[in-house]
Design a binder for these strands. Sequence first.
DNA 1: AAATCGTGGCA
DNA 2: TTGCCAAGATT
Length: 380
Amino acid sequence: MPETPTTDLLDWYDRHARRLPWRVPPGSDATPDPYRVWLSEVMLQQTTVAAVKGYYERFTARWPTVEALAAAPDAEVMAEWAGLGYYARARNLLACARTVAARGGFPRTEAGLLALPGVGPYTAAAVAAIAFGERAAVVDGNIERVMARVFDIATPLPAARAEIRERTDALTPADRPGDYAQAVMDLGSTICTPRSPACGICPWREPCLARARGVQAERPVKPPRKAVPQRRGVAYVGRREDGAWLLETRGEDRMLGGMLGWPGSAWDRGEEEAPPPVPGDWVVLNGEARHGFSHFGLALRVLVARLPLDAEPARGTFVAVEAFRAGDLPTAMRRVLDVARTSPLIADGEPSVPAQETEMLPPALIESHTGAIRKKGPAG
DNA sequence: AAATCGTGGCA
DNA sequence: TTGCCAAGATT
């Protein structure tokens, strides 16, 4: 086992720590706010620092305390999270905030934190170490990679996790455990990167076994990924004469649960069809809304209709034009809107096409009709 | 325990 | 363009 100079890494961190909005600079006497540490850690789950920054700033500006967040309506929090992905995090975030507010503050131990919704082994250890100074072993993807290289662990993930956790725990100091964890994470994200690590300037260059053996690019060993299947569906973008949009809040048992979306078909049972949310002159657009999820690709056929003021939809509710923001939608639903907006039927103000063109068409005619629209549609 | 759950950036 | 993957949690 190589020497792994923890204190050297803390010295490196004192000089090279990234300045991040949720981070207290090393050496400052300020104590990090547990609420902000927790919020940032949840946002950072499987998500890049660059993507998180803006969301973190907006959340903390709007809800400066866990009590404020706990009091927020679900829809506002989900809308603020829109675009960040993994929406169960936002649902759990609210549940957790309400639990914490009700009990009068965050649990101050790793075990106590682990019991909170949306707080797993990584987040519990990170908050315990960073906000409360507990000597908890923090293991994220960065730290996995660093440890797999420093100790040249050839066991493939996820089987290697037991050993990685042991190694991490053995190295974690009682003094400054939070800074230590952030130091290893910074090392992993700036030097010990997944591809072409900068071993020449690494503070752990000397003890690193994988580097000594020239196998750093092959650590950690990961299983091959499965190919993602392709799925299809339909989405209905309805717009009332007063400009209101027909939207629904998706059930929590569905994909994008809790988020705003266009009524449409399921995507998971091979269903491509679904009845319209309200009877009307629905027109099929030519361009499809394509989106790649983590475990499947999706192509959505988009139908649009202009709806009368007295429309009574079986699904969804109308959102007034001044209350509607595309940014409140998850990305897949924004793509649907992008396609829908290529149709004059959905444009702001009066319809710019003769009424005849908005008639419901027999299926056999849909192809030719949408073919005419295609020229104005987006490429693809 | 393996599958599920988003998104954007980058080589 | 495609594939890879980022401060994981849940069931």
